[in-house]
Simulated scan of single mutants.
Amino acid sequence: MVDVRRLPSADDLLVLLTVARLGRFNAVAEALGTTHTTISRRILALDRQLGGRTLERTPQGWELTALGADAVTAAEAIEQSLGDLEARRSRSDALTGMLRISTPDGFGARFVTPALVRVQQENPRLDVEMLSATRKASQNRSGVDLEVVVGRTETATAEPIFLTNYFLRLYAGPAYAERRGLPERLEDIRHHSFVSYVESALQVQELGHRSSQLPLPVSSFQSTSIFAQVEAVHAGAGIGLLPSFMVPAGSALLPVLHDGFHRQLPIWAVARPESLRSAAVQVAVAAIRREIGERADELAA
Rank of each mutant, 00 (worst) to 15 (best):
V112A: 10
T113S: 15
E30G: 05
L207P: 04
T54S: 12
G52R: 02
S138G: 10
L22H: 00
V285D: 00
E294G: 09
E184F: 11
Q139Y: 06
P215T: 09
L242M: 03
S90Q: 14
M1F: 11
A71Y: 02
G238R: 06
P160M: 01
G238W: 01
I39N: 03
E187G: 05
R6P: 01
P217N: 08
A301V: 10
G260D: 14
A109F: 02
T96D: 09
L207F: 03
D127S: 14
L7S: 13
A201P: 00
E291R: 13
T224D: 11
F25P: 04
T103V: 15
L99S: 02
E154N: 13
F111S: 02
D127F: 11
D70F: 00
R180S: 08
S219M: 11
A31D: 06
H234Q: 12
G97C: 07
S223K: 06
T134C: 07
F221R: 11
N123G: 11
E154Y: 04
V2C: 03
L170S: 09
A87T: 05
S9D: 13
F162W: 05
R169W: 04
R91V: 10
T113E: 15
L13K: 10
E231M: 01
T134I: 12
E63V: 14
R290L: 15
A175T: 12
E199K: 03
I292T: 08
S81E: 15
P255C: 12
S132H: 10
G238I: 11
P124F: 03
G236L: 10
I226W: 01
R185Q: 15
V148A: 05
G236W: 00
L299Q: 08
H191Y: 13
L168N: 10
A115S: 08
S9C: 12
G173S: 02
A235M: 07
R180V: 04
L253E: 08
A87Y: 04
P104N: 01
L214D: 05
M98W: 09
Q229D: 07
P215L: 04
P124I: 02
V15K: 01
R91L: 14
E63H: 07
V198H: 06
G51W: 10
E178L: 05
A228E: 15
V247A: 01
S90H: 15
R263F: 09
H36M: 06
R185K: 11
L82Q: 13
F162N: 08
A115F: 04
S193E: 14
R179E: 13
A10M: 10
L55C: 04
L44H: 10
